[in-house]
Simulated scan of single mutants.
Amino acid sequence: MSEPNTPASSPCLLGELPPEAGGLPDAETRRDVMRWRKAERARLIALRQALPVAARVAADRALAAELDARLGTPGGATIAITWPFKGEPDLRAWAAARREGGDRIVLPVVVEKGAPLIFRLWEEGARLARGVWDIPVPPPEAPEVTPDVVLSPVVGLGAGTYRLGYGGGFYDRTLARLHARGHNPRTIAIGYAFQEIPTIFPLPHDVALGEALLVPCS
């Protein structure tokens, strides 16, 4: 790696807030949090993109093996994965094997800015369209499906399994809507060990994930 794994400086006043506080005292401190998150996001993405190919491949294999151990034998679950973006773990081969075993694989689709994600079925050999940021997504004619398991890649992961993402809030909105509709999918944070940080200084809109799976890279 080309940069040390040193967190960005904590924002002003936040030393007074416990990680699980879930609230902020004023607008100025909220701005400090957002500035800190932006800097920490850039630092962690740079570290992730600097990973050597061999280390990334080995780590992704370890992720796949641990996911199989946690989820058990394939056989009918609907699993949401993501197309790898900016050095995220690549679980496409693992997903293909799960599909062959009987699971269904779905991909998230951005409908519009500020809206929750939807999930569309990704079938073997199906044509994919270009979505936001040119990320491949199933086309509009693909069925919309509610997942049983959501594998959520992280930029950073803090105490309480709070996820630092790209700043759009898509997963927070999506999980909040699923919960409001009575759906409680199993949610697993996916990433590498160096992405674990002490806290993301949770805000009221942040939704914690259920489990963490961060593997070492060497």
Rank of each mutant, 00 (worst) to 15 (best):
E3R: 09
E3K: 09
E3H: 12
A8I: 02
P11H: 08
L14T: 03
P25F: 02
R31P: 00
V33I: 13
M34V: 09
R35G: 08
W36N: 02
E40C: 05
A42L: 15
R43E: 05
I45F: 11
A46L: 03
Q49C: 13
A55R: 06
V57L: 03
V57M: 04
A59K: 01
A59H: 05
L63F: 05
E66C: 04
G72D: 01
G72W: 01
A77H: 02
T82F: 11
W83R: 11
K86A: 11
G87L: 14
P89A: 09
L91T: 00
R92T: 14
R92W: 11
I105A: 03
V110D: 14
V111M: 13
V111E: 09
R120S: 05
E124Q: 08
G125F: 09
L128P: 13
A129K: 05
W133R: 09
V137T: 10
V154L: 11
V154A: 13
V155D: 10
L157V: 01
L157F: 11
G160S: 07
T161A: 07
L164T: 05
Y166P: 13
G167S: 13
G169S: 15
Y171P: 14
R173F: 08
R173C: 11
T174P: 15
L178W: 15
H183R: 05
T187A: 06
Y192A: 01
A193Y: 00
A193F: 06
E196I: 06
T199E: 04
P202W: 05
D206A: 13
A208Y: 07
L209K: 02
L213G: 01
C217Y: 11
C217D: 08
S218G: 11
S218F: 13
